[in-house]
Nucleic acid binder design. Structure first.
Length: 848
RNA sequence: GCGGACGUGGCGAAACCGGUAGACGCAGCGGACUUAAAAUCCGCUUCCCGUUUGGGAGUGCGGGUUCGAGUCCCGCCGUCCGCACCA
C-alpha cells in the first residue's frame, strides 16, 4: 500500500461508485425508521464558500450515521435560485439571469460533489425552474381560495433612477444602494399573505419546538410580539374636522386613573389634520419623520412633543387631559395613539418631566402614595388613587377596567401584534410570477390551474431600468379567463422567501402533476434535523412555519411544524491581515518569516487583525476548491468537525488543516497495517498473535457508544476527540486480535466523517461491500463499565494522592486505603480525621 | 435601554447530577531516524517555587453556600448577538 493517502484518486473513485450504485437515494417505500436530514439550500452565487462546507459536512455526518444505524435517510440538495443577484449580473455582465443562474448551479454542484456528500441528487430542484415555481403558483392559488391571500395598497421604497422597488436593507441612509438616488415612498397595490391569522398558533407552536435553540424561539416570540390590553376611545373636547374621538391601546388599562395626558404619532390622522392649519406642528411632524427612522439614534433621542391645545376626556373622571403630538409614539403600532401614565411608564415619565405634567401614582408596592422619582414603577403592587380599583392587584384591575369599558361600550379587550401580514410582491423579473390576471370588468382573476405554470418570458433585456415583465411587448397581454376580453397579467413576482417556504416538502415528494403527494410527503415530514445559519432565525423559519400551517389549513398536509429539530451553526472565521499601507491582504499573500508575518510580494511587515467572518472585502477567505485540491475532501471535512463546538465560530487556520491532513494519513497507515495483515488471508478472522486486549476492547466500546451519542447531539468536536483518543490507544497497544478488531471498527467510526478514506480502507482490509452501506458497530454494554477506578484522596478538599482500586469497594474499605496512601499519611502527620466523606468509586475527603 | 449567550493555558477547547480542572487538537520546546531536509516516531508543555519526591496559586472580578464550586446563589466587569421608544 501507499505510504500516503491519495485523495485525488480515492475521492473521485468512491464518488463515482456511490453515484453508480445510487447509494444515497431515499426510498419512499422503505419500512425502516425515517430520518429527514436537511441543510438550508444555497443561493447559487457561483462558488461554494467554506461556510457551506461546514454546514453540509455536519448534515452529512448525521445523515451517514443515521444510515449506519439502519434508518432510511432523506438527505436532499437543491437551489434557492431566484433573486436579485441574477438580475444584477444581467445588468452588469449582459447575461440572462437564467443562464447565469444555471451555470452557477453547475459549478457549485461540481464543487459539492467533490466533497462526497451523501446526497440524494435524484431529488435535486431549482426554484427558478417552471416545474418548481409552477407548483408554487398552484399552492398560491390554493391559499388564495382559502382566503389567505389579498391585495392592499402599501408603501414601498422606490428607487427613481433604477425604477425599481427596494427592500429595506437596500436602502442606505435613505438612498438606493445601487443608484445612490434618494429613495421615495410610493403607494402600490401589493399582494399579502395573512400570516397574522396564524399569529397565535405560530406563537403557541414555539412551545412544542423543544429541539430548537431557545434563542431562536425567543427571537420569533419577540418578532410576533403579542400584547394583550384594552383598546378604547377618548372623547375629544373639540372635533378635528369630523374626528370626535381618539382611539388608543394600552397594555396597562389598570393604570387608567394615572393618565395625565394623551399623545399621538406625527402621522396620526389628527396630527395630519391639525398640521394643515398649523405650520409649527407641520414642522415638528416633519422633524419626527426624519429622525424617526434613524434607528441608532433612538436610544439617545430626547422625548419631544407638541401641545395641540386640544384635550381628551377621561372616561371615568371626566377630567380634561392635554393632547400632544409626540415623537415617541409610532403610527404603525396599535392605534398610533397612547394614554400616557407617567408614574408607570418610563417614556411617559420622561415626557411628563420635560413638559411639567402631573405624575400621579396609582400602583403602590407598599400601599404608600410616595411621589414618583425619575424611575417609573412597573413592578407589582395594589391600586391606589383609582376609585373602584383601589386595593386590587394589577391583573384584577386590568380585568375590571376592561369589563367596565365593554359594558359601557367605549372600549374592548384586544390583542395587538407586532407581526404584520407578509407582503410578497416584488416588482422584479427573476422570481415566481404571481398567477393572476387583471381585467377591467372582472377585476383580479386567478389564472386557472390548468393554465399553470405562468412561465417567465425568456426574451428580456436589462439595458434599461425597471421591471422587464412590465415593459415586455407581449407577455402581459392576455385574455381574461372569465370574460375573454383583453386583460393584463400581474407583473409582480413572489418574494423568494416563498420559494424557500416549501422546498423541503417538494424534496419529500415531487410528482409532475401536483406540488407534492400528501401521503408520501407526510412519511418524511417534519424535517428531523434542519441545519443552517442563525441569520435565518426569524424570516425564513417563520415564513416556512406559516406556509406549512397555511397548507395544513387548506387540507393539503397534516403537518403544522415543518422542522422538528433546528441547529444553527457558527461561522467560519479567519485572521485578517494588513500591509503597512493599511490594505487588506489575502492569506496567500502573507508568509511567515521567523516569528513575524511579511508580505509574499515585498517582504513588508504585516499586521495581524481580528479573527473575523470570512468576507471578500477583508480578503480573509479561503476557497474550498483550493483546499480540496491540496488535501482532499476528507481532510477538509475533518477540519470542519474538529475543535470548535458546531454552534460556535470556527477559526480557519493553515496549521489546523495541516493537522487534519496529518491525522487522515495516520488513520491511513493504521488501516494499512490491518489491510496488509489481511492480504495473506492470515488475519481475516482476527486470530493472530497476542490474543485479546481487554483494556483496548473496553476503550473501543466506550468510544463507539460515546461517538454515537455525540453525533446525535451534533457535538462533532467531542466525537473527533474520542476518535483521537481511540487512535492513540490503538497505536500504543501491542499486537492482538482485539487490536485488529479495533482498527476495523475504527474505520466504521470515522466513515461518516471521512467517507473516502473509510471506503478505501474498508476495501483494502478485504471487507464486504461498501462501508457506506455497513452497519454501525454494536456496543457490548458490559464493556462500558470499568472494573478499576481511580479514587481521589483529598485532605480538607485538596488532592493529596490517588489510589487505583477495583470498582465497587465499600466505603470503609476506601477510607482505610485512602488513609494508607503515602501522601495522605504524610499530610495528616498522625492527626485523626474529624470527618470522612466517601463518594464510592470517586473520592475520599478527610476533614481534620 | 430591553432581551439573550458567553468569559477556562500561548490558541481552539473538554470536564456527566457539585467530586482528580485543562481530555483531545494546534502552536512551542527537547530527542530519535536522516549526509541533510521533509515525513514519521518518542518525550515535555497552566503559572510560580524546588534538583527529584513535593509545595503554592489557578476557570473574568468581589462575596456567599458546601467536607468539596469552572459547575449553585448574590453583586460587579468585559465581549458578542438580537430587538429597537411595541404603549
Amino acid at each position: 500500500m501507499q505510504r500516503r493517502f491519495n485523495p485525488l484518486e480515492a475521492d473521485a473513485k468512491w464518488q463515482r461508485i456511490w453515484d453508480e450504485k445510487q447509494s444515497f437515494r431515499a426510498d419512499d417505500t422503505s419500512d425502516k425508521p425515517r430520518s429527514y436530514v436537511l441543510e438550508m439550500f444555497p443561493y447559487p452565487s457561483g462558488r461554494i464558500h467554506i461556510g457551506h462546507v461546514r454546514n453540509y459536512t455536519m448534515g452529512d455526518v448525521l445523515a451517514r450515521f443515521r444510515r449506519m444505524i439502519g434508518h432510511e435517510v432523506l438527505h436532499p440538495m437543491g437551489w434557492d435560485a431566484f433573486g436579485m443577484p441574477a438580475e444584477n449580473a444581467a445588468m452588469e455582465k449582459k447575461v440572462h439571469p437564467g443562464d447565469w443562474t444555471r451555470s452557477n448551479i453547475a459549478n457549485m454542484k461540481a464543487q459539492l460533489k467533490r466533497l462526497g456528500f451523501a446526497l440524494d441528487w435524484s431529488r435535486e430542484l431549482a426554484t427558478c425552474e417552471p416545474d418548481y415555481y409552477g407548483q408554487e403558483q398552484a399552492l398560491f392559488l390554493d391559499l388564495y381560495e382559502a382566503g389567505l391571500v389579498y391585495r392592499k395598497e402599501s408603501a414601498v421604497n422606490w428607487d427613481p433612477v433604477d425604477m425599481t422597488v427596494l427592500a429595506n436593507e437596500q436602502v442606505i441612509d435613505g438612498k438606493g444602494w445601487r443608484s445612490g438616488a434618494p429613495v421615495e415612498k410610493r403607494k402600490l397595490n401589493q399582494w399579502f399573505l395573512k400570516i397574522t391569522q396564524f399569529a397565535d398558533d405560530l406563537l403557541d407552536g414555539l412551545k412544542t419546538l423543544d429541539q430548537w435553540p431557545e434563542k431562536v424561539r425567543l427571537m420569533q416570540e419577540n418578532w410576533i410580539g403579542k400584547s394583550v390590553g384594552l383598546q378604547f376611545r377618548f372623547k375629544l373636547d373639540a372635533p378635528v374636522g369630523d374626528i370626535t374621538e381618539l382611539e388608543v391601546f394600552s397594555t396597562r388599562p389598570d393604570t387608567i386613573f394615572g393618565a395625565s395626558f394623551a399623545a399621538v404619532a406625527a402621522d396620526h390622522p389628527i396630527a395630519l389634520a391639525l398640521a394643515e392649519k398649523d405650520a409649527n406642528l407641520a414642522a415638528f411632524a416633519e422633524e419626527c419623520r426624519k429622525t424617526g427612522t434613524a434607528a441608532a439614534e433612538v436610544e439617545t433621542q430626547e422625548k419631544k412633543g407638541y401641545d395641540t391645545g386640544l384635550s381628551v376626556i377621561h372616561p371615568f373622571t371626566g377630567a380634561k387631559l392635554p393632547l400632544f403630538v409626540a415623537n415617541f409614539v409610532l403610527m404603525d403600532y396599535g392605534t398610533g395613539a397612547v394614554m400616557a401614565v407617567p408614574a408607570h411608564d418610563q417614556r411617559d415619565l420622561d415626557f411628563a418631566r420635560k413638559y411639567m405634567l402631573p405624575t400621579p401614582r396609582v400602583v403602590s408596592p407598599d400601599g404608600e402614595d410616595t411621589p414618583v422619582g425619575d424611575e417609573a414603577w412597573t413592578g407589582p403592587g395594589a391600586l391606589i388613587n383609582s376609585d373602584f380599583l383601589n386595593g386590587m392587584e394589577i391583573e384584577a384591575a386590568k380585568a375590571a377596567v376592561i369589563a367596565r369599558a365593554e359594558t359601557e361600550g367605549w372600549g374592548q379587550g384586544t390583542t395587538v401584534w407586532r407581526l404584520r401580514d407578509w407582503g410578497v410582491s416584488r416588482q422584479r423579473y427573476w422570481g415566481t410570477p404571481i398567477p393572476f390576471i387583471h381585467c377591467d370588468d372582472c377585476g383580479v382573476v386567478p389564472v386557472p390551474k390548468d393554465q399553470l405554470p405562468v412561465t417567465l418570458p425568456e426574451d428580456v433585456s436589462f439595458d434599461i431600468p425597471g421591471n422587464p415583465l412590465e415593459r415586455h411587448p407581449t407577455w402581459k397581454h392576455v385574455d381574461c379567463p372569465k370574460c375573454g376580453k383583453a386583460a393584463r397579467r400581474e407583473t409582480d413576482t413572489l418574494d423568494t422567501f416563498v420559494d424557500s417556504s416549501w422546498y423541503f416538502i417538494r424534496f419529500a415528494s415531487q410528482p409532475d402533476d401536483k406540488p407534492f403527494d400528501k401521503a408520501v410527503a407526510e412519511q418524511w415530514l417534519p424535517v428531523g434535523q434542519y441545519i443552517g445559519g442563525i441569520e435565518h432565525a426569524i424570516l425564513h423559519l417563520l415564513y416556512a412555519r406559516f406556509w406549512t400551517r397555511a397548507l395544513n389549513y387548506c387540507g393539503k398536509i397534516d403537518v403544522k411544524e415543518p422542522f422538528a429539530g433546528l441547529f444553527t451553526q457558527g461561522m467560519v472565521t479567519h485572521e485578517t491581515y494588513k500591509d503597512p499601507a493599511g490594505h487588506w491582504l489575502a492569506p496567500q499573500d502573507v508568509e511567515k518569516r521567523g516569528d513575524s508575518l511579511v508580505t509574499v510580494a515585498g517582504g513588508e511587515p504585516v499586521t495581524i487583525g481580528r479573527v473575523e467572518k470570512m468576507s471578500k472585502s477583508k480578503k480573509n477567505v479561503v476557497d474550498p476548491d483550493d483546499i480540496i485540491d491540496q488535501y482532499g475532501a476528507d481532510a477538509v471535512r475533518w477540519f470542519m468537525l474538529s475543535d470548535s463546538p458546531p454552534e460556535r465560530d470556527l477559526p480557519w487556520t493553515a496549521s489546523g488543516i495541516e493537522g487534519s491532513w496529518r491525522f487522515v494519513n495516520r488513520l491511513w497507515r493504521l488501516f494499512g497495517e490491518a489491510g496488509d495483515q489481511g492480504e495473506g488471508g492470515t488475519n481475516k478472522g482476527g486470530e493472530d498473535r497476542g490474543g485479546t486486549d481487554k483494556a483496548l476492547t473496553r476503550k473501543l466500546h466506550q468510544t463507539i457508544d460515546g461517538i454515537a451519542k455525540d453525533i446525535e447531539a451534533l457535538s462533532f468536536n467531542k466525537a473527533v476527540a474520542k476518535i483521537y483518543e481511540l487512535t492513540n490507544a490503538i497505536e500504543k497497544a501491542g499486537p492482538s486480535a482485539s487490536r485488529t478488531d479495533a482498527i476495523r471498527a475504527l474505520a466504521l467510526l470515522v466513515a461518516p466523517m471521512v467517507p473516502h478514506l473509510a471506503e478505501e480502507a474498508w476495501s483494502d482490509m478485504g471487507c464486504e461491500g461498501l462501508i457506506a452501506d455497513a452497519a454501525w458497530p454494536p456496543v457490548d454494554p458490559a464493556m462500558l463499565v470499568e472494573d478499576e477506578v481511580t479514587i481521589a484522596c483529598q485532605v480538607m478538599g485538596k488532592l493529596r494522592d490517588t489510589i487505583t482500586v477495583p470498582k465497587g469497594l465499600p466505603k470503609d474499605e476506601l477510607e482505610r486505603l485512602a488513609l494508607a496512601a503515602p501522601n495522605v499519611a504524610r499530610t495528616l502527620d498522625g492527626a485523626t480525621p474529624k470527618k470522612v466523606i466517601v463518594v464510592p468509586d470517586r473520592l475520599v475527603n478527610l476533614v481534620i
